[in-house]
Computed example of a mutant assay.
Amino acid sequence: MALVTFIELKAGTGKIQPTNLTAQAKVFTVESGALIVQLDSYGSADREIPSKQSQTLQFGEEAAHQLYRILKDTYKFQD
């Protein structure tokens, strides 16, 4: 599990991963009153324990806004 504090857009190439999986998102408030968006990914059907929680990423407002800008610019999302 990790709290993402900064997202840097990096130029480069990549390849699509061969494994498909399911993810869930949830939103909660911490003691300070800040909202956190959490993404949990779950193992693919091919894993030893299918559907077991695999990764957790948490985003505070600043990192979430950085991700939003990257997604908006990449996919030309409209507000």
Results as ranks from 00 to 15, higher is better:
Leu3His: 15
Glu8Gln: 13
Tyr75Arg: 10
Thr5Asp: 02
His65Ile: 07
Gln24Trp: 00
Phe28Trp: 12
Gly12Glu: 02
Thr74Ser: 15
Met1Cys: 07
Ala64Arg: 13
Leu21Cys: 10
Tyr42Cys: 02
Asn20Asp: 04
Thr19Glu: 06
Asp40Arg: 13
His65Lys: 14
Thr29Phe: 05
Leu67Trp: 00
Ile16Thr: 14
Gln78Ala: 08
Tyr75Val: 04
Gln38Val: 10
Lys15Gly: 06
Ile7Leu: 15
Gln55Thr: 12
Ala34Glu: 15
Thr56Ala: 05
Ala2Gly: 01
Gln78Arg: 10
Leu35Val: 02
Glu61His: 06
Leu21Glu: 07
Gln66Glu: 12
Leu71Ile: 05
Gln38Arg: 15
Lys10Ser: 04
Phe59Lys: 12
Tyr42Phe: 06
Asp73Met: 04
Ser51Trp: 07
Glu8Thr: 07
Ala63Asp: 06
Pro18Met: 01
Leu3Cys: 07
Lys15Leu: 03
Leu35Gly: 05
Ala2Tyr: 07
Leu21Gln: 10
Gln38Gly: 06
Asp40Met: 12
Ala25Gln: 08
Gln78Cys: 03
Gln38Leu: 11
Tyr42Gly: 04
Asp73Tyr: 01
Ala45Ser: 09
Arg47Gln: 14
Phe77Thr: 00
Gln53Ile: 04
Ala63Trp: 05
Thr22Lys: 11
Leu35Met: 04
Ile16Met: 15
Leu9His: 14
Ser32Phe: 02
Ser32Asn: 15
Thr5Trp: 00
Asp40Trp: 02
Gln24Ile: 01
Val27Thr: 13
Ile49Ala: 06
Val37Phe: 09
Met1Arg: 12
Tyr68Thr: 11
Phe77Tyr: 09
Ala2Gln: 03
Lys26Cys: 04
Ala11Leu: 02
Arg47Ile: 05
Asn20Cys: 03
Asn20Tyr: 08
Phe6Leu: 01
Thr5Tyr: 01
Ala45Ile: 06
Met1Phe: 05
Thr29Trp: 05
Leu35Asn: 03
Glu48Cys: 06
Ala25Met: 05
Ala11Asp: 00
Gly60Thr: 00
Leu9Trp: 07
Gly14Glu: 01
Ala23Gly: 12
Ala25Leu: 08
Ile7Val: 10
Tyr68Asn: 14
Glu31Pro: 09
Ala25Arg: 12
Ile16His: 14
Leu3Gln: 13
His65Cys: 07
Tyr75Lys: 10
Lys72Arg: 14
Glu61Arg: 13
Met1Gln: 10
Pro18Leu: 01
Gln55Asn: 12
Lys15Val: 05
Ser51Cys: 07
Ala63Asn: 09
Ser44Phe: 01
Thr74Glu: 10
Gln17Ile: 04
Ala11Lys: 07
Gly43Ser: 15
Gln24Asn: 06
Asp40Val: 14
Ala2His: 05
Thr13Trp: 11
Leu9Asn: 14
Asp79Lys: 09
Gly60Asp: 09
Ile16Trp: 10
Lys52Asp: 03
Phe28Lys: 03
Gln55Asp: 11
Val4Lys: 07
Thr19Lys: 11
Ser32Met: 00
Gly60Cys: 03
Gln66Leu: 09
Ala11Glu: 00
Leu71Asn: 01
Ala11Phe: 01
Ala45Arg: 02
Thr56His: 04
Gly60Leu: 02
Ala23Leu: 12
Gly33Ala: 09
Ala23Trp: 10
Ser54His: 11
Thr22Phe: 09
Gly14Phe: 11
Thr22Gln: 03
Ala23Cys: 14
Ile36Cys: 07
Ser51Met: 10
Gln58Lys: 13
Ala11Met: 00
Ile70Ala: 14
Arg47Ala: 15
Phe59Ala: 07
Arg69Leu: 08
Lys52Phe: 04
Leu67Gln: 00
Gln17Leu: 07
Glu8Tyr: 05
Gly60Ser: 02
